[in-house]
């Protein structure tokens, strides 16, 4: 099976947010970037599917600038066979342009299964997987926490409000991976050495304008400091009379 894994380079979740001078983006100074945590579940799932089938190729792809090569190398070290950087110089994209750019590139490579994280933890959009599936005309299951392949049909489980649903999702497919699906492996020393010799190609990304204008990035409004109360009675009175929530 030809498996594509889509990954994104994102700011570490514990990094401090500073607004760039233009008021629209993140000031990257002093921010640590790493692979989107949900994409690690996608990468791990790809390796497990290939191991189980005893055959197949994993191609990992990232849309971004040259610095995303670091995350692609990490995937090669985990076990991907090859990597492709869709280079757009690191421009801001929305869900619409990202899905269209990746869909355009997929026309040039064999692919039967596309695995992604459920969302990237920078913009927390989560649009990409089912948008991509729609553009490709593929079946899709999102936010998957358990996955088994029976012949050519996946049995994918996803959590919904107050329960869990099981989706029958035939190949070719796009699957978005949620926490709980697997335990991503750390690259071994052998894997890291092998990754240096694996192909990492750079391909110019198709030019697609985002459908959204990024107007501004703002810090949350300052919240007045909370109040430490001395007793349970004082707390319950405040919840009732001030906050009016009980």
């Amino acid at each position: 099976m030809e498996i594509i894994v889509c990954v994104k380079r994102v700011p570490a979740t514990d990094s401090k947010v500073k607004i760039a001078a233009d008021g629209r983006g993140l000031d990257p100074a002093g921010v640590e970037f790493l692979m989107n945590p949900y994409d690690e579940y996608a990468m791990e799932q790809a390796i497990q599917l290939r191991e189980k089938a005893g055959a197949g190729t994993i191609t990992v792809v990232s849309l971004g600038g040259a610095d995303a090569q670091k995350e692609l190398r990490q995937c090669l070290a985990m076990g991907a066979d090859k990597a492709v950087l869709l280079d757009d110089g690191g421009k801001p994209n929305d869900g619409c342009s990202t899905a269209r750019i990746v869909a355009a590139w997929l026309k040039t490579v064999p692919h039967e299964l596309v695995l992604c994280g459920r969302q990237a933890v920078d913009n927390d959009e989560g649009q990409f997987p089912s948008r991509l599936a729609t553009l490709l005309g593929f079946a899709c299951a999102t936010e998957v926490v358990a996955l088994t392949l029976d012949g050519k049909v996946f049995r994918a489980e996803r959590d919904i409000e107050g329960g869990r649903e099981v989706v029958a999702c035939p190949l070719p497919a796009v699957i978005s991976c949620n926490k709980g699906l697997n335990e991503p492996r750390s690259p071994s020393l052998k894997g890291i050495m092998a990754a240096k010799k694996k192909p990492l190609d750079t391909v110019a990304a198709t030019a697609v304008e985002p459908a959204l204008e990024f107007v501004s990035l703002m810090l949350p409004p300052e919240k007045p400091p909370g109040r430490i109360v001395g007793s349970v009675q004082e707390l319950v009175a405040a919840l009732r009379n001030e906050a009016k929530v009980i």
Binding site: D94, G95, C96, A99, Q119, D124, E125, G126, Q127, F128, P129, S130, R131, L132, A133, T134, L135, C140, T142, E143, R158, D159, I160, E161, P210, A211, L212
Partner: peptide, 21 residues
């Protein structure tokens, strides 16, 4: 919701529309 997160991006893709989640 779980359904909105799954379905709205598909509708947006069919409309070739911008979307905010």
């Amino acid at each position: 919701t779980a359904m909105g997160r799954d379905l709205a991006p598909r509708i947006a893709a069919l409309l070739d529309a911008g979307m905010v989640s």
